[in-house]
Design a protein around this nucleic acid. Structure first.
Length: 136
DNA sequence: GCCAACGTTGGC
DNA sequence: GCCAACGTTGGC
């Protein structure tokens, strides 16, 4: 069974739309230890929400993990790992952080509790509620 | 632009 | 190994 994740990105740096254009990308730049730990637990076939930080602050789309984690070839630090992604689909309606914060169902969601974490697991139940909120 | 919440660095 | 100082992230 695939696992579910959430990946944050500053859309001015790299957006979900850019992933759609690129067809696939290497998700690099993760330095935080907890985020790296989660990255190392990803497997081919897992799904991830793409969340835009900055002024957007919304979950905008779904990506699929298409490689297992591997050492970042661009980094000298052996702890750094990356995965390859491809776009799955865009959410018909982006799900804003404000809606997630306003819903107490999500009170234990890392997106709310650990605002600086850039890679996090998403519980099965959260995943499906967010899909519904996003129009899927 | 501010600042809370973290993470990192470096002196001791 | 502690912790003060500093840097960064990201929401507001």
């Amino acid at each position: 069974m695939p696992a579910y994740w959430l990946l944050k990105t500053e859309p001015g740096e790299y957006s979900f739309d850019q992933l759609v254009v690129d067809r696939r990308t290497v998700w690099d730049g993760v330095a935080n230890n907890l985020a790296l730990k989660y990255l190392r637990n990803m497997k081919v076939g897992d799904k991830a929400f793409i969340y835009h930080t900055g002024t957007e602050r919304a979950i905008v789309g779904i990506a699929e993990i298409i490689s297992n984690p591997y050492r970042d070839p661009e980094s000298k630090d052996p702890k750094r790992v990356v995965v390859n992604l491809k776009p799955d689909r865009k959410l018909p309606y982006p799900v804003p952080l404000s809606e997630i914060k306003n819903n107490k169902t999500f009170k234990d969601f890392d997106l709310v509790k650990l605002s600086r974490l850039s890679v996090m697991p998403v519980k099965n139940v959260y995943w499906h509620i967010i899909l519904g909120m996003g129009g899927l």
